[in-house]
Design a protein around this nucleic acid. Structure first.
Length: 377
DNA sequence: CACTCGTGGGC
DNA sequence: TGCCCAAGAGT
């Protein structure tokens, strides 16, 4: 059964399935370019369910490009906190300001103009152009790669050539005239709900057209690519408290968690205890001479290719420090790994964007609303 | 092309 | 539990 001759039937089966089974989602109501754009960026490498609450909060606060462009990066990052890949948030803000300046506040409709926005790559440009503006273009994400690799039985890793080009070619051929919006969402929805990691072929509207299913090798498609090795690392962080306030610093713009606020810390060196490491790292990053008062325990988390064990400690200014017993702020820190610093109250901490592990620690110490749950405040 | 850049769900 | 991985982009 050559799939080429059955493309019209395949398209119709897919569209019918989508009409019956699509999930009701907040960005499937108005289809404004702004909403499509924000939803697509939020959903990059993110599970759909998680994106819904973020999207709803975002639209309540930033209902249009102008509102976003006028916002501070601090607030944008705070709303993005927990979604990860924070350069997406910084790019979205930069793009909104670019739209205000170069496009007079009107979201650009041309593919090239959309693609030129910061943080908009091949996928997102095609998604906005087709879903918001109806352009006859495919959206090739991981879902589409998986669906195409199975239906057309591609036998190479879909992230690499030549399979990557084959996926794009098939994806383009599949797009029906005048219905790119529904079709592209249907392909991704099918990949999410039916043609997932564990395919549910009995429920699939494309089963009759699926080559790898007929060959009995669906479980061998798509062909997986190389995986990066996971590196375990031991890390420490310290919560330095003084007269009811907590010390935080703002990470540099480049690198992981760029421009987010954190408790200082760093890696445990070989032969070093976590207690020794936190005092050393805190001193290196701030110039403060600190004493380790107690442990807050361990938080495990991972990012990209790292698996982190985070040892958390309560710190105070060392007795040798003049300000240790004084009821006034100590001398300013000498920052070596951050662009800014603050002594904040637990309530103020709520308004700062922090990495997930540090937010988890803050909530553990001060409570989700900033009320102290542990002695020593 | 290969690497960086987060996070939490699911199995 | 440990590991895979999800509506990718930038360098």
């Amino acid at each position: 059964m050559p799939p080429d001759a059955h493309l019209p039937q395949l398209r119709e089966a897919l569209l019918a399935w989508f009409a019956a089974h699509q999930r009701p989602l907040p960005w499937r109501i108005n289809y404004t370019p702004y909403e499509v754009w924000i939803s697509e960026v939020m959903l990059q490498q993110t599970q759909m369910e998680r994106g819904v609450s973020y999207f709803t909060r975002w639209m309540a606060r930033f209902p249009d490009v102008a509102a976003l462009a006028a916002a501070s990066e601090e607030e944008v990052l705070r709303l993005w906190e927990g979604l990860g890949y924070y350069s997406r948030a910084r790019h979205v803000l930069a793009a909104a300001r670019l739209i205000m300046e170069k496009h007079k506040g009107v979201f650009p409709s041309g593919l090239e103009d959309i693609r030129a926005l910061p943080g908009v790559g091949p996928y997102t440009a095609g998604a906005v152009a087709s879903i918001a503006f109806g352009e006859k273009l495919p959206c090739v994400d991981a879902n589409v790669e998986r669906v195409v690799a199975r239906v057309f039985d591609l036998d190479g890793p879909v992230k690499q050539e030549p399979a990557a080009s084959a996926v794009r070619a098939w994806a383009l051929r599949l797009v029906p005239e005048g219905r790119a919006r529904e079709h592209n969402q249907a392909m991704m929805e099918l990949g999410a709900l039916v043609c997932g990691k564990k395919p549910r072929c009995a429920l699939c509207p494309l089963a009759a057209f699926c080559v790898s299913l007929h060959l009995g090798i669906v479980d061998q498609r798509p062909v997986p690519g190389k995986r990066a090795a996971i590196t375990p690392i031991e890390v420490v962080t310290g919560v330095l408290r003084h007269t009811g306030r907590v010390f935080v610093q703002k990470r540099l713009a480049s690198g992981v968690w760029g421009n987010l606020w954190e408790f200082p810390g760093g890696r445990v060196e070989p032969g070093e205890s976590p207690e020794q490491a936190v005092a050393r790292e805190f001193g290196e990053e701030t110039g403060f001479d600190v004493a380790v008062d107690r442990s807050y325990g361990i938080i495990r988390h991972g990012y990209t290719t790292y698996r982190i064990t985070l040892h958390c400690f309560a710190l105070s200014l060392a007795a040798t420090t003049a300000a240790a017993t004084a009821a006034e702020p100590p001398a300013p820190p000498i920052l070596t790994a951050a662009s800014a610093w603050r002594w904040v109250t637990p309530v103020e901490l709520e308004n700062l964007a922090m990495p997930a592990a540090h937010r988890k620690l803050a909530d553990q110490i001060f409570g989700p609303g900033g009320q102290s749950r542990l002695p020593g405040a």
